[in-house]
Nucleic acid binder design. Structure first.
Lengths: 400, 400
DNA sequence: ATCATTTAATTAATAAAACTACGAAAGTCC
DNA sequence: GGACTTTCGTAGTTTTATTAATTAAATGAT
């Protein structure tokens, strides 16, 4: 990326919004201080964002943060616009799609306003899906959005907005869901890999934690890395996929086509399968599993699976130089001893544990916050368009 | 990092030098084209770098690259200064230290001009080392360098210039080697983790390959990641350490304090140990190992070790979204079947192998090129000094 | 109640860096 | 030798952020 003056304004604007997302509420002066820019600059950016209705002034708010002062003229506090929905968030689940109208600021809670079940038996599931979308569209208060953000599990090419591989929602691979959404709502459509959205959601709610690996356990097992406060982006449309690391000695077939993946052991169905194998007489239900583990602690079959996943995670931590794992999904829904064991196993393999603390925390899934973060990053602040800069000189020359 | 006009010039200068390192030789116009900047800008930057003697004009050279044209006024070709050494490179090995005077451009070959063995038995090994440095200094043609770059194996805090942990050169941990160098040569001293230097060296010689994981096998086992043409930098002073990922079922003690690390299986000594265990009657020498493998192919004991390392690497590839592994060190010194087996094992665990090509190539170690790359990046172009920008406003305020 | 103090926000002038446009220089091709 | 093409440098413009100075709005002491 080449920098010219016309571009750097955007970068500072981006930094300011990011800071404001961290602080929640801040004044022009506070932002300037935190970012190391001059007050006139911060003021000018804020004014611009106010006219765009991306920010709004907040009345009764007091300055928070370290620099809380009582003296002097009080700053006019600012926040990301909460008064109106800016984005439409859509979560494509395995059997269900959920939708929510999302304002730019403050979506701590995971309240999805609409949902419908998929009709996988339909002749054309994608068409049926689009029809249900239209149905929802009628019920929405707002017609117009800054953008629509769709989160999808599996392997996703976010820039090309294509679903490359989705073992549990196969029908979504051939369908161009973004195009379908574009037909229903007249707004730019963004596609996000699900775990990346979860990681960004965690980041929004814990803005101080700028480096971690999020590991999500559900129908599948996957993850995402936040590195320096930003999602680790990748040359390939694949990343965070520790769940498809093979476990030596494990021979279960995985949905991805390989054999022995971590996912076959620790996905919901994988856990139940192992549970059933270890306790043939019990009903292999999630409730029974919870009860069994609550009574007996981490049984050997589970310990082995956790050890294997921990090695894959530790390998990633060691290579990336991270020290924090955030666990979401089904593992957080089992007795706490399970997560304790898992934490210990990760620490055992993470090299940094020999020098300092390695943390492994559990967290609820925070999709909405993540979807908003994606929308802000990619729509409000169209950061890098290297084509634009490069194309102007290089491309025309080449054509010629 | 906050951007103001005074800063962005550096970024473009950095981009230009990087491009020139890629191309080897290029004209002002060619650089402007490649980088998408205007010709006046490129010209101005080049002029500045010429007066600093970082670049030099080259006489008889023809334009190379895709855009080779015969028409029009021929461009004056430029290259990184080769006519005089700019950096002093020092490689701290286990038993030996090697030194080389390095020009900015063109150090394809690994010719080290000076070397000496360590006196580990000395009462004060660090002082003995410094003395030997002085000895070398007398023999050097050049007294004055832009900088001295020291590469060290182990765990290194590059910004603090401290060696935190070096299992094979323990005496280096307590000694402040950079300070010692600073006493001998009056120039800024940079510290680089060895594998990172190797990775940067590979990048210099293969500038088109911007994303890969380098895995080095020697006295220890370690690696480094190049991500988007830059070394993946890390919040912790630790990264690339796939060698210290535990292998389930392996109980060898590792120099790092843990048990079962990959390194205990695939370091030179680890390989010989396994070889000896598998063939008690043979002499456990490297030559014997080579011979045995050349005759018998990859034996089961080796296959197991390679499989384990491959899983750790695959986990990292999957999480990072990479598709290329560059192998250096002792593994490249064994019969080719070994690397073939290893490649296959990595492909088996790398998820991208199900969708496209995963490459695993071997390469010689290229330290000198890496040391130069480090010197250029950190000395000639002092990129990010967030303190500077931030401190001016924030710090003074706080003090006050 | 008034005034000094402190912090916030705005305005004006300055500096840095990149861009476009134009023209001179230095080759090739006919 | 002239037409053409490409390179390189100069001049003037634009964008952006900075510093310095000014106005605004609160607290606290006399």
């Amino acid at each position: 990326m080449i920098f010219h003056p016309a571009r750097i304004g955007l970068l500072n604007k981006r930094a300011l919004i990011r800071q404001l997302r961290k602080d929640g509420v801040a004044s022009r002066a506070g932002l300037a201080r935190a970012l190391g820019m001059s007050q006139p600059t911060a003021g000018k950016i804020v004014d611009e964002l106010l006219t765009q209705e991306i920010l709004e002034e907040v009345e009764g708010a007091e300055a928070n943060g370290d620099h809380a002062t009582r003296l002097g003229r009080p700053g006019r506090q600012l926040q990301l616009n909460r008064s109106q929905p800016s984005f439409l968030g859509i979560q494509l689940g395995v059997s269900e799609t959920r939708l929510a109208e999302l304002p730019l600021g403050a979506c701590d809670e995971n309240d999805w306003h609409f949902s419908f079940h998929h009709d996988a038996a339909a002749a054309n599931p994608a068409a049926a899906w689009e029809k249900q979308l239209r149905n929802v569209a009628k019920q929405l208060r707002s017609r117009k959005f800054l953008g629509v953000v769709l989160s999808v599990p599996g392997i996703v090419d976010e820039s090309a907005r294509r679903i490359l591989f989705s073992p549990n929602i196969h029908w979504s691979e051939s369908a161009d869901l973004c195009a379908a959404i574009g037909k229903v709502w007249d707004a730019p459509v963004l596609l996000v890999q699900e775990e990346r959205a979860l990681a960004l959601g965690y980041l929004t709610l814990h803005p101080d934690q700028e480096d971690f690996l999020l590991a999500d356990f559900g129908e599948g097992v996957g993850g995402a890395v936040i590195f320096g406060g930003k999602p680790l982006m990748h040359p390939l449309p694949i990343s965070g996929e520790f769940g498809h690391t093979p476990v030596l000695g494990n021979h279960r077939r995985c949905g991805c086509g390989a054999v022995g993946c971590v996912e076959t052991l620790l996905s919901t169905s994988g856990l139940l399968k192992s549970f059933a194998a270890a306790h043939p007489r019990q009903t292999a239900s999630w409730a029974a599993l919870q009860k069994q583990l609550a009574e007996n602690g981490v049984e050997p079959w589970l310990a082995q699976s956790l050890d294997a996943a921990a090695v894959a995670l530790a390998a990633a931590l060691n290579v990336l130089g991270l020290r924090r794992v955030v666990v979401t999904g089904n593992l957080t829904d089992l007795p706490p001893t399970v997560l304790e064991y898992f934490s210990g196993a990760i620490r055992g393999g993470a090299m940094w544990a020999r020098f300092g603390e390695v943390e492994c925390v559990s967290a609820p899934r925070n999709r909405t916050a993540g979807l908003v973060a994606v929308g802000i990053d990619r729509l409000i602040l169209p950061e890098a368009e290297p084509k634009l800069s490069r194309g102007k000189n290089a491309a025309t020359k080449l054509v010629k």
